[in-house]
């Protein structure tokens, strides 16, 4: 149900923004048809393998994105420094398993992706409650190990 609401909002929006023909009857009709088809496939996939979506997540996610973008910028600067000035900023690759507190797969996915999206850290393997992370430097890993991001994602997930 949540998925249906989610997709019934985003899919038409996606179509309209792609198309740009908001007053072309025929195309709008095709658009409706297309949205139905795409949503149909989505629902079918959802039925085959349900994911736990929560509409509330949709509201919280922009804020998370803003925060994440900031992290990404910081991390990028760090990596770029290590690329251009290896003497001053040597790399020290590390690999470590980190605890993660998300309960849903979606949540873990978001967490893992966030880790990977910030350069300097890559989530290699996600298991039940641990994430294997490779980091370019010990510092990056330390940041992650503080669990800040983990908490934010768990909050985003909106645990029961």
């Amino acid at each position: 149900m949540a998925y249906l609401i989610l997709s019934s909002l985003t899919l038409p929006a996606f179509w309209l923004l792609l198309s740009g023909f908001w007053d072309h009857g025929l195309l709008l009709a095709f658009g409706a048809l297309s949205v139905v088809i795409a949503a149909g496939f989505g629902l079918r996939m959802e039925r085959l393998e349900p994911t736990c979506y929560r509409p509330a997540m949709l509201l919280r996610i922009p804020a998370y994105w803003v925060w994440l973008t900031g992290e990404i910028v910081k991390a990028n600067i760090d990596v770029v420094k290590r690329i251009w000035w290896p003497q001053e900023h040597p790399i020290s690759p590390t690999m470590q398993r980190l605890h993660c507190t998300q309960q849903t797969l979606l949540g873990k996915t978001i967490y893992a992706n966030s880790i990977t999206l910030t350069p300097g850290t890559v989530a290699i393997e996600v298991s039940d409650n641990e994430i294997l992370v490779h980091a370019l430097s010990g510092a990056a890993l330390q940041d992650l190990a503080t669990g800040d991001m983990d908490r934010r994602v768990t909050r985003l997930e909106g645990a029961r």
Partner: peptide, 21 residues
Amino acid sequence: DFVLRIIAKLLIPYILLFALY
């Protein structure tokens, strides 16, 4: 390997819609 599956499932309706577009 659920990361891949979840993201894929998320994206696929949009890919299909894009195709229809």
